[in-house]
Write a protein that binds this DNA or RNA. Structure first.
Lengths: 329, 329
DNA sequence: CTGTTAGCGCTTTCAG
DNA sequence: CTGAAAGCGCTAACAG
């Protein structure tokens, strides 16, 4: 930058100001500076700027399962929205592990991100969140809710899950199993609640044996499904708590030589972009992934603008996508 | 940090050294410093450190289609490998647009990333790459190859595509169509070459009418497939050039009320994690996505270690996954 | 309209 | 074993 100033015959101050347009400069000066910049191939050092200004124009994003198609869409949306607002994204995978999450969050915070977008693990309340709070890092939580005064955005879980179960019940199923995700996560808790409420509504008993602990993982759901099928009185329908588990369930069912929906009906939380190409076409709840991402960024932007505002919690609608793995048409 | 020094009754120099272990300090001093850090809730400012040291311990990652399941796995692998080496990831989506790619790459470079991992767009040679070169940013290219003396890693395309075509030919198909990706990308060029070579090997004529320009996009591939089916003499088999196009092709085929593989066989480049759940189960070429990501990081690390070394180009093997969309068993 | 100068928070000679 | 002080590249009062 000094080089540029020398070449243009002005002070670094002026260079800085013409670059940032932070104060008027004569036409001629501006041209000379711009020209010098061109000739030197000068590249502004954002770090130095951030240090001087206090503010990096970057956001930290910490989520789990970077390869989860659900989060993937969210990431894409966040990248877009953040970019439009002039923010870069610093990425970290929490691996759904509170300790690792803290490491990631700390690394991002030390890099002075202006704000943190986080899909909190169970355990965030003890680790990552207190840290962020103590360091005064503006935070918005996404996907999962937590009992803390923070900006949060996620989807409706209870109602939609109930809708899935009701649908199966209306089709005459009485033994409806559910593959549940990571214990303690608000998404899991809410979906289970939706499941139980719907059973009750339908006058069906809740049978703990029909709960398959899938830990939100493909393989665990697979094994749990096998176990369900081995029951003396196996379920005639199953609802999957998330996309990864859906894969596991389907594989297990196929392995046993059974067919969906003839031998067992299956409905799921989370849509796939190509869920209509599966055999059979999957009846699912679709979350507005892109909207989730962009809302999270919007919440962050308002938070940065007005740090004192009351925290907001937002629930996004999820939609029932009726195809035929439920046994219809 | 000054605060910490004061509290510990030492100089900032000492604080810095005990934090980094860059020089011995008495047991007692160290303890006092560590204690002071604890008490103040001090968080090191990585920016300031980077400014002073010149080196941010972060890598830029610029790719297109953050939601492409193929790249998604690559990103996950890169995040893991980079993290293990103590590097954070700065993320940007090129949107497969050279102009935007340059913007992204520039933004990342200005943030002083130590190196750039890039899946170059067609056009990178005119925009992003010259910029990176002029700024001396260590760069490694991934997925697509480019004619430039840079570290590059990607997969085998020609052979595997030929294998796909041979397989169809061996099944008796003579009208084999191909959905091709973005023109000019090395992946596209090589896959088309594999296709043509295999046709020739099989003694089949190359019919330009059987080339569907899919632009690596789902919808364009869909439309192109429809057009193929409307041909007076439509293909009896089609090979898809990448995962997004596969979706489009399958949808188009389904729309026409046709079935794979009975009415038309389909094989594809790129596996899906659940390609075995599709109807029918997809015969594909699977790229070693995780390996691609980790190799890219490894290349980067060696490059950073030895900036003068000769650039390396690496080709990773892709594997033929035989299922039954080809019409077998 | 432009320049001087004091930091931003940290590292690292160079001296003790 | 420890400190003083000079930067890293940039911004923003404060002066003119």
């Amino acid at each position: 930058m000094a080089e540029v100033a020398r070449l243009a015959g002005v002070s670094v101050t002026t260079v800085s100001h013409v670059i940032n347009g932070t104060r008027p400069a004569s036409q001629r000066t501006r041209e000379r500076v711009l020209d010098a910049i061109e000739r030197t191939g000068y590249r502004p050092n954002t770090l130095a700027r951030a240090l001087a200004r206090g503010g990096t124009q970057s956001l930290g994003l910490a989520i789990s399962g970077l390869s989860n198609p659900y989060f993937t869409d969210v990431v894409a949306a966040i990248e877009g929205a953040a970019g439009r607002a002039g923010h870069m994204l610093l990425l970290g995978d929490t691996r759904e592990d509170p300790e690792h999450e803290l490491r990631i969050v700390r690394a991002l915070a030390e890099r002075q991100v202006d704000g943190m977008l986080l899909a909190p693990t169970v355990g965030a309340v003890e680790h990552a969140l207190p840290y962020l709070e103590s360091q005064n890092v503006p935070t918005v939580l996404l996907d999962r809710f937590v009992d803390a005064p923070l900006d949060q955005v996620g989807c409706e879980n209870e109602g939609p899950t109930a809708q899935l179960v009701e649908h199966l019940a209306s089709l005459g199923h009485t033994r409806i199993a559910m593959a549940v995700g990571i214990p303690g996560l608000s998404t899991t808790v809410e979906r289970v609640k939706g499941y139980r409420d719907a059973l009750e509504q339908a006058g069906l008993p809740f049978d703990p044996a029909l709960i398959a602990e899938g830990g939100s993982q493909r393989d665990r759901a697979h094994d749990a499904m096998l176990a369900l099928l081995d029951l003396p009185d196996p379920p005639t329908a199953v609802v999957s708590g998330n996309n990864f588990m859906t894969i596991g369930l389907l594989r297990a069912i196929a392995e046993r030589g059974l067919t969906v929906p003839d031998d067992i009906a299956l409905v799921a939380f989370d849509d796939f972009e190509w869920a209509d190409l599966f055999a059979p076409r999957l009846t699912v709840i679709r979350q507005p992934t892109a909207e989730l991402g962009s809302r999270a960024v919007e919440l962050m932007l308002s938070r940065l603008e007005d740090p004192g505002a009351a925290p907001r919690r937002e629930r996004l609608e999820a939609t029932f996508v009726h195809r035929n793995s439920c046994g219809c048409s």
